[in-house]
Amino acid sequence: MIEYLVVGGLALYGIAIAVAVIRMIIGPTLPDRVLALDIIGVNLISCIAIISVMLSTTAFLDVILILGILAFISTIAFARYLERGVIIERKRDS
């Protein structure tokens, strides 16, 4: 029973990632594409969690942490680029 649930969840996450990829390709504006990229990152984290349940191992939990950190930093970088046009400032003007 649990195997069917795990495989079904993995398939649903695959569909979600495919829909996000479509949005990233046809997205009219740049914030749509950034948001689709963030959604793909979060869904990949969930996929790795489900795979580690399916294989009953804990070796992939470091991958989840690193992927979460990279998704967080990339979201901040894209948001700064959209908002100000510069990612790392030389000196703050405040």
Binding site: I69, I73, A77, I87, I88, E89, R90, K91
Partner: peptide
């Protein structure tokens, strides 16, 4: 690499001189 990503996060949130 993870240590470098921590420094990059600092550079993103603040500025280079700080």
């Amino acid at each position: 690499l993870v240590l470098a990503s921590a420094f990059v996060l600092l550079y993103l949130a603040f500025d280079i001189e700080t």
